[in-house]
């Protein structure tokens, strides 16, 4: 597998703009960018962790990161979608306009929601 390039963390703080709600029990790492276009929202739940240099760009709906969900360093979530409770999204994965079920773990560098790829739906949670 080609591991895509890892994020460069150039800033110690995070950039949050637009209608973004972050639980005070969530953790946002340095260099993360959370931005919601006008009319769209981002909601980050309790105990969620957003890794260094991750980008959440909401447009056309809501990006919800539920309780205890984890986004690794450099993860990209684009458009809209819910990352379910306790899901774990590996480093440098891309989630495009799609939901990820609760407790799913996604390996580093994967793409989900690409309309041009077969099998671009996230795995189901472990039984």
């Amino acid at each position: 597998m080609l591991l895509p390039s890892l994020p460069t963390v150039i800033r110690r703080d995070a950039c949050i703009c637009g209608d973004v709600t972050v639980s005070d029990r969530a953790t946002i790492s340095p260099g993360a960018v959370l931005q919601a276009a006008p009319g769209s929202r981002i909601v980050i739940g309790d105990g969620a962790c957003i890794g260094a240099g991750a980008v959440l760009s909401a447009c056309g709906g809501t990006i919800a990161i539920e309780t205890g969900a984890m986004l690794g360093a450099g993860v990209l979530v684009f458009g809209w979608g819910t990352i379910g409770k306790y899901a774990c999204i590996g480093t440098a994965a891309t989630i495009y306009q799609t939901d990820v079920a609760a407790t799913v773990a996604i390996a580093a560098g994967q793409i989900f929601g690409d309309p041009t790829l077969p099998n671009s739906n996230p795995a189901q949670p472990p039984a």
Binding site: C17, Q35, P38, G60, F78, G79, P115, T116
Partner: peptide, 21 residues
């Protein structure tokens, strides 16, 4: 170009947001 166009449109929306901010 459907996907590309969508991403560009989102970007236009965000650009408007940046200007406001």
């Amino acid at each position: 170009e459907k996907f590309a166009r969508h991403v560009v449109e989102v970007n236009e929306a965000l650009r408007a947001g940046y200007r406001c901010a």
